[in-house]
Design a protein around this nucleic acid. Structure first.
Lengths: 339, 339
DNA sequence: TAATACAATGAATACGTATTCATTATTAAT
DNA sequence: ATTAATAATGAATACGTATTCATTGTATTA
């Protein structure tokens, strides 16, 4: 297992100190950003460090300070373009702040216990959970260890963690309103997994609007946020219910699947059926789709998530926050006015 | 900055030792997987550890062992679905081996110096560079520190690192051969950035086949592996050269852009123009595309990359390897026989 | 039973840094 | 010039683990 032959010893702050003719403590002060060092010595130290290619050891540093510059980022379905974008933006922000990301792709909806443990072992400064949930036990564990946690784009009623997400209820209301206003009468909603907060909130909003207009024609199917699920469910739905005149997809990927299925069946979009998605991923803008969709304010959501996490890390805020952001409708070419 | 109030002290091996009535050394032996511990004490220790929710501190461990269980994974363009899949698979493999991933999304083609430094600070066991290159200096730095590096899907002539990629030369040859055999005569290749090994190798293979048949009709444009670049270049190309009967895209995303552009111009795919991609990402299978493409043996490439990296980490192999894998043609509906 | 081999254990130490505390150099104030 | 105040510095120590070395306990063999 071990291989002493190739184990090269790095230079340490002691080596730098010796070369610069100062104490290790002073070297440490320079690299920890402590200002209490004379310019003369600082310069000598930096030169020596340069010569030796010295870099402080992050593990030793974390050990003594009991804090690390690591952030755990837990995601599901990184293959979903929306979350790829999320990861990219989080990386950009944290990287600029000097933090590093330990990436974990959880297979299950509930982040597994051992994955939590690993993050605890590394003394991560904070954790972001995206598109997944923590078990009560895991949540407690983080709390015990004083590790900040923010849920991104997902929440549960009983969680005590801070959470940032897009107002699903309101978005769905506005989407429904738009569809009603444009003269649609036979609705379908192909959602993500049915038990999640996202799905339920949207359904509530959607239904509320329809109820308000006395519309009861709402077909509901729940997929799993994949193209295939959207495709198959739409195919089934449109075969049985040829009078459906608009379909709301739980995310853009579903909506694209829906769109292809509907077209395969010979319907025209939007002439025969209107389709609307959610997220505003890049592909919605592709020429063959041009999907009307709901834009989640991704950058803003990430920025706020980062800000909240940092506040909690630095102990500025101990109460958990719930930040609900609004999005906006992006109108392209998949919804037609039927008035 | 610091926040002593919330700094909760974790339990350590000493605490466990005390509770179990043994020495810290013995606790350490249990958690380090050392077998030289009696069953009786092992049990007592595990119970005590359970009670205290003890977990060994990864930083202390890395400090003393001078090796970490961290792998740096450097990617560009995580938004590219191909690389999202790559990341997912790498995570799956390393996670099962007990390693953790520090994710770095490099903005530039050459991984920046400070990003390298960060990885060095964390004493990563190894590094995987995907779709990017190291400067000579960065390469040296890793070598000095005995950190294993494997390049994934990209190489340079003068690199001394191990590298795993798909045989671009051969793939392009086979693709060209297929297109020639199916009766195509006017070729276009919309590649990625022109100076990369990938692009050049493919071009060489492609051209070789055409030259062999005395075909000189090859239009070349280089994009940047985005849909937009494929779309625009194809639009331009097909407007000027209406006789082009097949287009090879540098990756699937480009090919999809090409496809949409060509259709927008009124051509039918594959009746008027054949299109072929590279990678076999999921979207190629979508109903509105059904793109014929070249499959990269993704899982196999990742498995081999992991294996090579582990060998180098464990010092089993010091010479660098170059593993060139073959892919296969996935025939769908975007190439038509013109004989 | 005695002699031997071997397994199990603990004490002590090292890993490389940040930080406290005491000391010395420097500046400001009188 | 003298004192007071402050800034800069170094020695020593702690962080939590793995590991060496010496010691004790246990099993094996003659």
């Amino acid at each position: 297992m071990s291989n002493p032959k190739t184990e090269k010893r790095n230079f340490t702050s002691h080596d730098v100190a010796e070369l610069a003719g100062v104490s290790q403590a002073t070297v440490s002060r320079v690299f920890a950003g402590n200002t209490k060092v004379s310019e003369k010595k600082r310069k000598r130290i930096m030169e020596a460090a340069q010569k030796l290619n010295y870099r402080p050891n992050a593990h030793a540093r974390s050990l003594i300070t009991r804090r690390s510059m690591l952030i755990g980022i837990v995601m599901r379905t990184i293959r979903n373009p929306f979350y790829s974008a999320v990861l990219e933006i989080f990386h950009d922000r944290f990287s600029k702040l000097g933090y590093h990301l330990i990436f974990i792709n959880s297979e299950n909806e509930n982040v597994e216990e051992w994955e939590i443990h690993k993050l605890l072992e590394y003394n991560v400064a904070g954790v972001i959970i995206s598109d997944a949930l923590l078990t009560q036990e895991a949540e407690d564990r983080f709390r015990e260890n004083g590790i900040a946690v923010v849920l991104f784009n997902r929440y549960t009623e009983n969680s005590e963690n801070s959470v940032v997400f897009c107002d699903n209820y309101l978005s769905a209301k506005q989407i429904a309103t738009y569809l009603v206003k444009t003269g649609h009468r036979n609705f379908a909603y192909i959602s993500g997994p049915s038990h999640t907060s996202i799905t339920m909130d949207r359904l509530r909003g959607f239904r509320e609007v329809l109820d308000g207009r006395g519309i009861s024609n709402l077909h509901i199917e729940s997929g799993d946020y994949t193209y295939e699920s959207g495709f198959e469910l739409a195919q089934e739905l449109m075969t049985k219910n040829k009078d459906i005149d608009c379909i709301f997809g739980g995310n853009d990927i579903i909506a694209l699947g829906v769109m292809d299925a509907v077209r395969m069946l010979g319907f025209e979009v939007p002439n025969d059926v209107s389709i609307i998605g959610f997220d505003n991923i890049r592909m919605t803008n592709w020429a063959s789709y041009n999907l009307t969709t709901w834009e989640q304010p991704l950058e803003g959501m990430v920025d706020n998530t980062v800000a909240i996490l940092l506040d909690e890390i630095n102990g500025k805020e101990s109460r958990s926050k719930m930040l609900v952001m609004k999005g906006r409708l992006v109108i392209r070419n998949t919804v037609k006015s039927r008035k």
